Amino acid sequence: MEKEGVPKAIETIKSYFMLQDKYFFENLKKIHNFTIRDYMVFHYIHVENPMHQVQPSKLAQYLDISPSAVSQLITNYEKRNWVKRVHSDTDRRNVYVSLTNEAHELMIERLPFEEVQIRKVISKCSTEDISAFIRVLSLINQQIPIEE
């Protein structure tokens, strides 16, 4: 038997994802002509990798796409002056992808924008609501399996 409130919770979570897509990613697309995938790639290179560069094979794993699709993606980003291929200083056979200065600036500009927007939305909630949100979202996140 399903717990009381589960259907409402499912609909609320779906609405949250749709709102997030509309509010954050549609604005991102309007401002910088980015797609969600573009943002994911930039975020992965810029935030999740301390050296701000990544091997194409790691990017393929992260995006769950083929190496040839990543190569095509990188080529398209190079044409837009968003990424560049960098050879390792120690082994020229190793190639990394890093953000260009232009793309790096876009990320630096974009990350605070998101936080400002989130703060604006959260500021309208009570302390109790924020605590409940954190608690519930943490519980949900713990249930989501993450494959490494």
Rank of each mutant, 00 (worst) to 15 (best):
K3W: 03
K3S: 15
V6I: 15
I13M: 14
Y16S: 10
F25P: 00
F25H: 10
E26G: 06
L28A: 05
N33Y: 07
N33F: 06
I36K: 15
R37S: 08
R37G: 07
Y39R: 07
M40G: 02
M40R: 14
V41T: 07
I45V: 10
E48K: 13
E48I: 04
H52I: 06
Q53P: 02
V54M: 06
Q55L: 09
S57I: 12
S57D: 11
Q61L: 13
Y62R: 12
D64L: 08
I65W: 03
S68H: 12
A69E: 09
V70H: 02
S71Y: 09
S71K: 15
L73H: 03
I74H: 02
I74V: 15
I74P: 01
E78Y: 00
E78C: 05
K79T: 02
R80Y: 01
N81W: 00
V83W: 06
R85G: 02
R85V: 09
V86D: 06
V86C: 04
S88Q: 09
S88H: 08
T90N: 10
D91M: 10
R93T: 11
R93Q: 08
R93S: 12
S98T: 13
L99R: 05
H104I: 01
H104C: 03
E105H: 13
E105F: 08
L106F: 07
E109F: 07
L111K: 02
L111T: 00
F113T: 04
Q117N: 12
I118R: 10
I118Y: 07
R119C: 00
R119T: 00
K120N: 01
K120C: 00
V121I: 14
V121L: 14
I122F: 10
I122L: 15
I122N: 00
C125Q: 10
C125L: 14
S126T: 15
S126F: 04
S126D: 05
T127S: 12
E128V: 10
S131G: 06
V136T: 07
V136G: 01
I140E: 01
N141D: 10
I144G: 03
I146C: 08
E147H: 12
E148H: 14
E148L: 12
